[in-house]
Write a protein that binds this DNA or RNA. Structure first.
Lengths: 200, 200
DNA sequence: GCGAAACGTGCAGTCCGTGCAATGTTGCGT
DNA sequence: ACGCAACATTGCACGGACTGCACGTTTCGC
């Protein structure tokens, strides 16, 4: 499937750099860590670092563009009779489960580090942003409109990103004791109801 | 009111730098413009540039933190019987009117330039982000919850930012021929209705 | 006016990010 | 097994972003 020694090595190096970046920044803060430090811990030359990430910040966030188109593809693959919101909820449910199930500490550490550095939050937004653009096209296709003619596709795509980010943030705030899928669901419940003031 | 020669000069220099940055980047693109170029056009030394903006990108975006808390304050000032969404709509309506009425070309140019550079979009998101944090607190106060206990305040604050950004983007896409307040309203209609698929 | 505080500026230095060219590794055909 | 072609790693040199510091100049409150 993944085949090739080359491919595997590349993936391994990329992950090593990402984890080195995460750990170091968690210890010393973003400004206390240089690209040279990260490269050193991952056992590659500083120059090689930039073959894997265009930016120090990107190495810390460590989400590749390939995972980005995924959401739009999954959305398109959902049964046609589902409404856009229903389809999105299903996609998010799947993603949330995957994130919560990964190497365990990766996402928590990532989120903790990102949350402490506004620059990285912005970077994360940028990553989501390109996913949302693809998603907007997919939504437009499903509803028979175009992104230019109607606000709906762009709005819904952006809102879905917001829902996921909010859930991730709440997950972090709960110190990862809450269930991520449950938080995602909660967010979508509020959205689907038109954001009414919560009863107390 | 604004008093002091010092204050006025500072404001003027800040604006000069921002506009210099905008124009230059519009002409040559973000990478074609150096801080020295911007400082030169605004008639200050390169070193002085950094007394006004922490970053080249910030000078291009040019939105100060003072305008940021504004949304939360206005929200809090709304009559108490309004629901959170109603109050937010009112605040956004006012903001949209102001933006559309400003020096005319400032926002259009800003949006055009920002939209062409993902890095700047991220920076804009960061600015909105701090506004949203303040807003979340205000929303929590209004609904009698706290930001920690419930997703609602954070979610609604983030969604409101999304609504405004989406409207701004649609405004840009219409080449500024559409009415910004109308676009904002349209976005909120969809949100308040729970984001149903648009009828065709 | 006058002293204190704020502002503008130059200088030196660190780090980020990139193009280029040399060197080492891997994959593949024979 | 061999050698060549493709690709990955690395060092070097460079331009630009940003910061701390020190010094001269301007403005403010009295």
């Amino acid at each position: 499937m993944t085949s090739g020694l080359r491919e595997r090595k590349k993936l391994a190096t990329r992950l090593a750099l990402h984890q080195a970046a995460l750990q170091l920044v968690a210890e010393r803060g973003l400004d206390g860590v240089s690209v040279d430090d990260i490269a050193a811990r991952a056992d590659v030359s500083p120059r090689t670092f930039f073959n894997y990430f265009p930016t120090k910040d990107d190495a810390v966030v460590g989400i590749d563009a390939s995972a980005v188109g995924q959401a739009a593809e999954r959305f398109t693959a959902r049964p046609a009779q589902e409404s856009p919101v229903e389809a999105l909820r299903a996609v998010h449910a799947q993603q949330a489960t995957e994130m919560a199930g990964e190497p365990e500490t990766l996402w928590p550490l990532r989120l903790r580090v990102i949350d402490e550095h506004p620059v990285l939050v912005a970077r994360l937004h940028a990553v989501f942003g390109s996913a949302e653009r693809a998603l907007a096209d997919a939504i437009a296709a499903r509803t028979g409109t175009t992104v230019g003619a109607d606000v709906y596709p762009t709005l819904l795509a952006a809102v879905s990103g917001t829902a996921m980010r909010t859930a991730l943030h709440a997950w972090l705030a709960s110190d990862f004791s809450a269930s991520l899928p449950a938080l995602v669901d909660e967010a979508w419940d509020a959205l689907a109801a038109g954001l009414p003031a919560p009863r107390r």
